[in-house]
Amino acid sequence: MSSQRIKFYQTGTFTVGNRLLDDSHRTVQASMTRANALTSGHRACQGCGEALGARYVLDTAMRATGGNLIAVNATGCLEVFTTPSPETAWQLPWLHSLFGNAAAVATGVAAAMRVKGKGTRVIAQGGDGGTTDIGFGCLSGMFERNDDVLYVCYDNEGYMNTGVQRSSATPPAARTATTPAVGAEPGNPFGTGKSLPLLAMAHRLPYVATASVFDLHDLEAKVTRAMGFGGARYLHVFVPCPLGWGFATDRTIELARLAAECGLFPLFEAIDGEVTSSTPIRRRVPVDAYLRAQKRFAHLFDGDQADPVVVRLQALADDNIRRFKLVDGAGGRP
């Protein structure tokens, strides 16, 4: 697949349109021959970013491997909404074991494939809770052993399946069921949380990338690139959650785009532990534009005066922009 970056200058939604492209540049998802690995009829909420992301990830990986692929899933929304037995939305071999062990199970599947010489590749996938919290031990082990697994985290910044509780991927100030918007410092405390992509890079993985469901060409390109490497790879996909974040279900893509364009979710790739490229922000927006669109940040905007917390969040975004060089001459305020 070509990795040429197509620039779209549509007006309005900025939605990337396949119809403007040559067949060879269209997404896997736009192809009649896509695997449909995660097929229709599942029970995801309307507007689910994770369902969208997973469909693109798996079909792209299926194309990259000629359909010779096995998926391992952590417990979570993706597992639950796709498989109330005997129904299953998976059209590839799929294994779910537990919440915290997907990476280790995937190691086992990959080992079996290697010993049998079948050349079958393995994807492990989970939400941010299953990845950054309970599954992190197993994941770090899989990383350092460099087992031949692509681990994909669909990050919706909280435990949505259990009713929107805080995870270590929940952003500062966000209201969740366990970080309520009450008290002196409403929402999730500042100074907490971790960046799994950076932790993955610290393991010196051959390939680490972040992606988002607002740029599905980019997501597909990164999956394809990831499948071109052997060993442990990590892809962190930003997937807005209408239910957990409190926004209308037709704004998933818009929210994903705003998160990137304000700098809070940087898009980048890293090879052997070094950042090799980042996606420049085309139309930089202040964090307000992203935060105001979500009920989980509503407490920052209910007073007469600007909440100083918004300034702190802007500083986090600015730091990302500087660190990942997301804007030419990065560092200035939008």
Partner: peptide, 19 residues
């Protein structure tokens, strides 16, 4: 592996994959 949870999880995945 890095823990017993992983030890048996790896065995689980391998067994489900036919090994």
């Amino acid at each position: 592996v890095e823990s017993e949870t992983s030890a048996l999880s790896v065995a689980l995945g391998a067994s489900a994959a036919g090994a």
